[in-house]
């Protein structure tokens, strides 16, 4: 019996699929950047237990961590225009970016909070005692250490986001997976097409992991002489 797999086809369609990698990366990177900004603001609220904002932040985090990202995506793309007509203008790509950044930010908020709290309180007290203001202490002493501590977990979120971005195909964004699906049904080569898509995701996350591994090694050497 001969298996019905055409590995040559897998290789043949990879260049075709790679044309859509940029859109996947575009959605991922923009969403990540926005998520980092929102996550950082939320983490400051969590650390300082700012009244009212703290409760709102907790509800936000709980909601976006406790519901499927696909549901959030559909809510934002199909649901928002229904309530606010202005969102009719919202493109699928933009909706995907919004959904992914809100979702990721809720995880990053906790990661950043843990990063900040991993820097012992004594250093903040020492900064205060030599006259540094709170922003000065954060900027010069606490954040540089907190960021280093948060990098591994943040990197994992980024890898997760690369893969999650494939959900954007459900609302009609033609990214990597959507193109794979197209090729699959056009040539009735489902296994090969999805395998090729999978390989590209794998290679991308693998490359990124290598990069992060190298960077983590580099920063682990700092602060030691």
């Amino acid at each position: 019996m001969v298996l019905n797999i055409d590995l040559v086809y897998v290789i043949e369609i990879i260049p075709e699929l790679l044309k859509y990698l940029p859109i996947t990366l575009y959605i991922t990177i923009i969403a990540m950047l926005i998520a980092i900004v929102i996550g950082a603001i939320l983490s400051i609220i969590l650390v300082n237990k700012v009244p009212v904002l703290l409760q709102l932040a907790r509800i936000y985090i709980s909601f976006f961590r406790g519901t499927p990202v696909l549901v959030q995506l559909l809510m934002i793309y199909f649901g928002l225009p229904q309530i606010f007509p202005i969102f009719n203008e919202l493109g699928a790509e933009a909706a995907a970016i919004i959904a992914f950044s809100l979702n990721t930010s809720s995880y990053l908020a906790e990661i950043f909070r843990a990063g900040i709290q991993s820097v012992d309180k004594g250093q903040a007290e020492a900064a205060t005692s030599v006259g540094l203001s709170y922003p000065q202490a954060m900027q010069g002493i606490i954040l540089p250490q907190a960021i280093r501590n948060a990098i591994p977990a943040t990197g994992n979120m980024f890898i997760g986001l690369i893969k999650n971005s494939s959900l954007a195909f459900t609302i009609g964004v033609t990214e990597l997976l959507a193109q794979g699906k197209l090729l699959a049904s056009a040539n009735l080569r489902f296994f090969e097409a999805y395998l090729a898509v999978g390989l590209i995701y794998w290679a991308t996350t693998f490359l990124y992991s290598q990069l992060q591994g190298w960077y983590e090694k580099r920063i682990s050497k700092a602060y030691i002489t």
Binding site: V119, D120, G122, Q123, E125, A126, A127, S129, G140, I141, P144, Q145, A222, Y223
Partner: peptide, 11 residues
């Protein structure tokens, strides 16, 4: 202040 646990800036 000089602290019991030094509290130097590690970075």
């Amino acid at each position: 202040m000089v602290f019991q646990h030094y509290n130097l800036f590690k970075n």
